[in-house]
């Protein structure tokens, strides 16, 4: 298995609490000695952040679809009227 691949898995386990105490210590020691590994971890954390932002963006798109369904469904006229009254 490639080093990069192994590191990707190890970094994920390290960040998400999936390493046992000994493996965690070994990994931390490797990080102290390896600027490359530290850099990989740094960018992997950024990758998770971007996935989270993407998830939020998609959720908002899905909520927009739900909103459009609620304001156009004849069965939801009570909801539609209540919103109309608020913004009259």
């Amino acid at each position: 298995m490639r080093t990069s691949w192994t590191d990707t898995i190890l970094i994920e386990k390290y960040l998400h609490g999936g390493l046992d105490p000994l493996a965690r210590q070994v990994f931390k020691a490797r990080m102290l000695q390896s600027p490359r590994l530290r850099l990989r971890m740094y960018f992997q954390k950024k990758a998770y952040t971007l996935v989270k932002l993407y998830h939020r963006k998609k959720l908002k798109e899905e909520m927009e679809i739900l909103h459009q369904q609620l304001v156009s469904d004849p069965a939801k006229s009570g909801f539609q009227q209540s919103i109309l009254r608020i913004f009259q």
């Binding site: 691949w5 990707t8 994920e12 960018f43 992997q44 971007l50």
Partner: peptide, 23 residues
């Protein structure tokens, strides 16, 4: 999943100069 994670990580790294405030 791990291939995708690596792909995103590499992209972030390669784009890090253009988007330096993210870092």
């Amino acid at each position: 999943k791990y291939k995708c994670l690596e792909k995103v990580r590499h992209t972030v790294k390669n784009q890090s100069v253009a988007y330096e405030d993210f870092l």
